[in-house]
């Protein structure tokens, strides 16, 4: 029974007309091919330059610890790409439909608001997922020289995919609640800015206050919360817990991130699991609010049905 239900749902997703249309529209344009090629080229070039500089042209000198550094570097580059590109793609998915005046017709089809929102969510992250998957062969260079094992890569990718989902949810939230794509884009980038930079600055300031305040414990806790909500620090936390805690980026931002993670004891499994649960829960809440917003009667109808079912 359950298997049949799952198969039915999967079949529906595979045959979801909106999903097929969105993927077709998104993937067949020349811009997509160009963007994919460009990204792969840039990441490839960065990986090559990084390795070349580290071994000064002699690949035999490459040490496994250095490939771990390369992995850390590439993973941060990828996180930066996710934070920049996702709002650009997802912040117009609903407001764009509204501006093109196609949303009204879409809402009169049997496609439910939930299926519309989830399809938009899936198609928004699909391009980024493709970018991430495409870079896997580059990461295989890292495996080739040792220092990192596939399970570690998958763990970091998992955290990045959750972050990607959260950014997409925030962007879809603004796109659904605001009428104009322009405003939605501004608010999406602003939200990402708050989570990536604002929380880092707030954590840093709280740390400084804690060092000069009698309420050291309180301010220390505030800075810990700020860091533990920040994807940059939580990726460092995960990487530290996986054994990449001593990167060679001396005096760099990445090394300072790692030192903050160590000083606040954030590299525990509980820390990044809490982060994952919080981000996934937040994303789910935002998407549910989008469903409600898309067709305001959705919940009223569900309530009426429930009452009718109870009275029966």
């Amino acid at each position: 029974m359950l298997v049949d239900a799952i198969r039915h749902r999967l079949g529906w997703w595979m045959d979801n007309p909106l999903l097929r249309k969105e993927l077709r529209q998104r993937m067949r344009s020349g811009r997509t091919v160009l963007a994919l090629s460009l990204y792969l080229f840039i990441i490839g070039a960065v990986a090559f330059v990084f390795m070349y500089v580290n071994v000064q042209g002699q690949t035999l000198l490459l040490q496994p610890t250095r490939t771990a550094d390369l992995f850390t570097f590439l993973s941060y580059l990828q996180l930066a790409m996710i934070s920049f590109v996702t709002p650009g793609i997802a912040s117009g998915v609903i407001s764009g439909e509204r501006e093109r005046q196609t949303l009204t017709v879409l809402l009169t089809t049997p496609l439910s608001p939930a299926s519309i929102i989830f399809t938009k969510f899936v198609t928004s992250i699909s391009f980024l997922l493709l970018l991430i998957v495409m870079t896997l062969p580059l990461y295989s260079i890292v495996f080739l020289f040792g220092g990192v094992v596939p399970s570690q890569v998958l763990a970091v990718f998992g955290l990045q995919i959750v972050t990607l989902g959260a950014i997409a949810s925030v962007s879809i939230f603004w796109s659904t609640w605001l009428r104009r794509t322009g405003w939605s884009t501004v608010f999406s980038y602003a939200t990402v800015g708050v989570f990536f930079l604002g929380l880092a600055v707030a954590g840093y300031l709280s740390d400084n206050i804690a060092n000069h305040s009698p309420d050291q414990g309180v301010w220390g806790m505030v800075s810990g919360i700020c860091y533990s909500l920040n994807p940059i620090y939580m990726q460092a936390s995960l990487e530290a817990s996986l054994g990449f805690a001593s990167p060679v980026f001396h005096q760099s931002i990445v090394s300072s991130v790692f030192s903050v993670v160590q000083s606040h004891d954030l590299s525990s499994t509980e820390s990044w699991l809490s982060f994952l649960y919080l981000y996934m829960g937040g994303s789910a809440l935002l998407l549910v609010s989008c469903i409600w917003r898309l067709r305001p009667g959705t919940f009223a109808v569900l309530r009426k049905r429930l009452v009718r079912w109870l009275l029966r």
Partner: peptide
């Protein structure tokens, strides 16, 4: 339902446009 003002999906052919709505139903 045909609203007074409505848009169309630019990157679809006429056939694909109709097929999309047909599949949606």
């Amino acid at each position: 339902y045909m609203p007074d003002v409505f848009g169309v999906y630019d990157d679809l052919s006429v056939r694909e446009y109709l097929a999309f709505y047909g599949t949606a139903y």
